[in-house]
């Protein structure tokens, strides 16, 4: 069972009938020269990569850009269509006046499985006081948060908001809240490792490829920055497989990672078990 914890359904044709909406997504997310593809092709590509499930991430930019890259309702629609393959997260623009109402709507009405936040694009520091109510609700409802962290590629996004150290207060003040600092917070990999060592409720994912080829990049990461023995000894439970589709093709990323993570139990954690724990906690799915 392999779970990809980081997929943006920007080009899913079931939510792409409106060309202006696709154009909005492309401009705000900073992705171009791709076209909507049918569910059959999306599922085939997942099968080809041997990915069983993918977490779908929306992004609410209501106060910043006047809309959503992908809305919570669109995520709900996709998950309803293929529930055995997709897990839906919700998103809230923390600067919305009705942010808390939206958050409760995501969890209580739409029944989505977690929250996606993008400090660099939604323009907030993760340790701002206005975020505390959001974190409290997520902790209380046992819903994990996927944070975009590290380099922000999107236009009009600010990398400063995604530095790992800004997430430390959350890890301390909400010990039962599981947070994933995605993209390994690239390029702040050592800082990310520092947080992983100290805080068991902090996770990260592999969804990064900003230099060179998949193989070159993951060779550097998994032989020099943090090799598989280091992972096995220190972080067996905290690194998740994420592809960042459609920026990167999941099967190519997975093949490259598999070249350097060869120990079976380390692989099983990275590709499968850690995602379950991130999603549902140590007690498992209730």
């Amino acid at each position: 069972m392999t779970t990809d914890v980081h997929m943006h359904p920007i080009y899913f044709d079931v939510i792409s009938s409106d060309d202006s909406k696709v154009k909005f997504r492309e401009e705000k997310f900073g992705i171009h020269k791709q076209s909507p593809y049918p569910m059959e092709e999306i599922l085939y590509e997942m099968d080809y990569a041997k990915i069983d499930k993918s977490i779908l991430l929306p992004l609410d930019l209501t106060t910043i850009e006047g809309g959503e890259v992908v809305s919570n309702e669109e995520i709900k629609k996709i998950v309803a269509e293929v529930p055995e393959r997709f897990i839906g997260f919700g998103s809230v623009d923390p600067s919305r006046e009705d942010a808390i109402d939206q958050l409760l709507y995501i969890f209580d009405d739409l029944k989505l499985s977690g929250l996606n936040l993008h400090p660099g694009k939604q323009l907030f520091y993760p340790n701002e006081s206005k975020m505390k109510k959001i974190y409290s609700i997520c902790q209380e409802k046992n819903k994990p948060i996927m944070f975009h962290a590290g380099l922000s590629w999107e236009p009009q996004s600010y990398i400063k908001y995604g530095q790992p150290i800004h997430f430390e207060e959350i890890a301390i003040e909400y010990p039962d809240l599981r947070i994933c600092l995605s993209h390994f917070c690239w390029p702040w990999i050592k800082e990310t490792i520092m947080l992983l060592i100290k805080y068991p409720n902090v996770y990260t994912d592999t969804s990064m490829l900003y230099l060179n080829s998949f193989e070159d990049f993951f060779r550097e990461l998994f032989t020099k920055e943090i090799d598989q023995l280091t992972i096995e000894r220190n972080f067996p439970k905290q690194i998740l497989f994420g592809s960042n589709t459609p920026r990167f093709r999941a099967f190519k990323m997975k093949q490259a990672i598999e070249k350097f993570i060869v120990k079976e139990d380390v692989r099983e954690n990275l590709f499968s078990l850690n995602a379950e724990e991130f999603l549902y906690g140590k007690k498992g799915k209730q």
Binding site: I31, W153, L211, S213, F214, D216, F248
Partner: peptide, 19 residues
């Protein structure tokens, strides 16, 4: 597949990697 190609990097015009 694994030669040292130059077209193996992040492409700003795509917002995606080439490879």
């Amino acid at each position: 597949d694994d030669d040292a190609y130059i077209h193996a990097h992040f492409l700003p015009s795509y917002g995606a990697t080439s490879n």
